[in-house]
Computed example of a mutant assay.
Amino acid sequence: MTTIVNPQVPFTRPIPGGLSPGRTITIEGAIPPRSDRFAINLQCGSADIAFHFNPRFGDQCIVRNSYISGHWGAEETSGGMPLVRGEQFEAEFKCSEGHFTVNLNGKHFCDFPHRIPYHKINHINVDGDVNIRHVTFADA
């Protein structure tokens, strides 16, 4: 297990050991009271985003998407907005063979199918109106 403590946002870091089925990335942080949006991106280098996780408080939804070869894919927005401005949160991204499972504050939020093979994902990026306490990379 590897943990990054109190990283400055925005930040981009390599994912230690890459991703494989059973690996989990957990992000613990706090959402500022006036936050508009933030993004957690699982990237393939600096160009492609395999999984863009983007809470948008003004729209009251969490957009999920991918950015491949210079183009955004189809947005997924179902599930509402379980995150609350001014509160702490925990977001867990678990890699499986066919998709990511996302749990927010210990509850299942969504599954996001792999649009890029998981073994190509090698960086995490967090940007926007959010404070991060811990980013933990763990094996099953």
Rank of each mutant, 00 (worst) to 15 (best):
R34L: 02
V135Y: 10
L19C: 12
R133K: 10
I121V: 15
A74M: 11
M81R: 05
A140G: 15
G79N: 08
F51A: 12
S96N: 06
F11Y: 02
E75A: 10
P7F: 11
P33F: 09
I49C: 04
H134T: 15
T12D: 08
Y118C: 09
P32V: 11
G22I: 05
T77Y: 04
T2H: 01
L83P: 10
T24A: 11
N54I: 10
G70Q: 03
H134Y: 12
H114C: 00
F51W: 12
I68Q: 04
V9P: 10
D127C: 14
E87S: 14
E97S: 04
I15M: 02
V5S: 13
N41M: 13
E75H: 11
E97M: 00
H119N: 11
F89T: 01
G106W: 01
G79D: 11
G128N: 06
H123Y: 14
V5Y: 13
P21L: 07
E87Q: 15
T12K: 02
I31R: 02
I27D: 06
T2Q: 02
Y67S: 01
Q60K: 09
G79Y: 12
I25D: 05
E75D: 15
L19K: 12
G17D: 07
A74W: 14
F38E: 09
R64P: 04
G106K: 00
A74F: 11
E87V: 13
R34F: 05
P32R: 01
P82K: 02
T101K: 03
A50W: 11
G58N: 10
